[in-house]
Write a protein that binds this DNA or RNA. Structure first.
Lengths: 134, 134
DNA sequence: TACTTAAAGAGAATAATTATCCTTTAAGCT
DNA sequence: AGCTTAAAGGATAATTATTCTCTTTAAGTA
């Protein structure tokens, strides 16, 4: 994935710090601010926490990344992509994406409420397959 | 609604402050911490913000209330009830409950992922009927 | 009514996030 | 490639959000 290009397409300067943040989001899955900071410091030892926050906010404003708010947990971030839902294992804290068509639910909600719906934030929690076997 | 009873059923002391907080959550809809504090101070002028936080946390631990995490907004709180979803109007900030069967979506997600699912947090955002007409 | 213990209230302490200021750098233009 | 400039980085202060500590008060119970 070409993060420089992706950043420029969103009218953001392609700094090495930003590229590093994006590649961490891609590679390491769903990280919170603290986890991101620990990892990004291994690449840029002098990076400031303020820089991380500023970049997260800048990239969110341009809808390049998305914040996922999770019950009882710190927010995580991911590179924006097609709509999908999230699953959390309450035992091992595994947190995964699931591509699932939410159109049906959204249509139903729109019908009932007369809202014109644009975004969905769906987090389902339970026990993953591995933890069920323990 | 008898909040004293509700509190005692959840092994919590039924203090007037707690009853006040619960009745605000019921009456005034979905409030965030700051809004709750402003309103509760009208009833208990000396109430401390720490008391509010402590009570929110205590009632959440006993599952008497629920925190709703909303993209780009502060968390709101509500008295726990049967599963439902939330709709947010991005224009006027109306925030409402919608009773909608999510069983289908959850079953589908469980089938795909092999998770045993227990909780769902669903917030859909868009434009409410009134704002569409503007 | 008195006892016990959890909760309230006040303020300090900590954590999380944002703002400020100055330096550095990416990107567009010769 | 070098020049210009607006944007971004880094350090730190400031602000905001939340939790902790300690003393006082009051709810639940015998």
């Amino acid at each position: 994935m070409n993060y420089e290009l992706l950043l420029r397409e969103h009218s953001l300067k392609a700094t090495p710090q930003r590229v590093g943040i994006l590649s961490l989001m891609q590679k390491s899955g769903h990280l919170d601010v603290e986890e991101l900071f620990i990892k990004i410091k291994k690449q840029f030892s002098t990076i400031s926490l303020a820089t991380l926050y500023k970049n997260i906010n800048a990239m969110m404003e341009k809808s390049l990344i998305t914040e996922i708010k999770i019950p009882n947990k710190k927010s995580k971030y991911e590179i924006a992509k097609e709509p999908h839902i999230h699953l959390l294992c309450q035992e091992c804290n595994e947190f995964i994406d699931l591509k699932l068509d939410v159109g049906c639910l959204v249509n139903e909600a729109a019908k009932e409420s007369h809202y014109r719906l644009k975004e969905s934030s769906i987090v389902l929690s339970g026990v993953c397959e591995k933890c069920q076997k323990k």
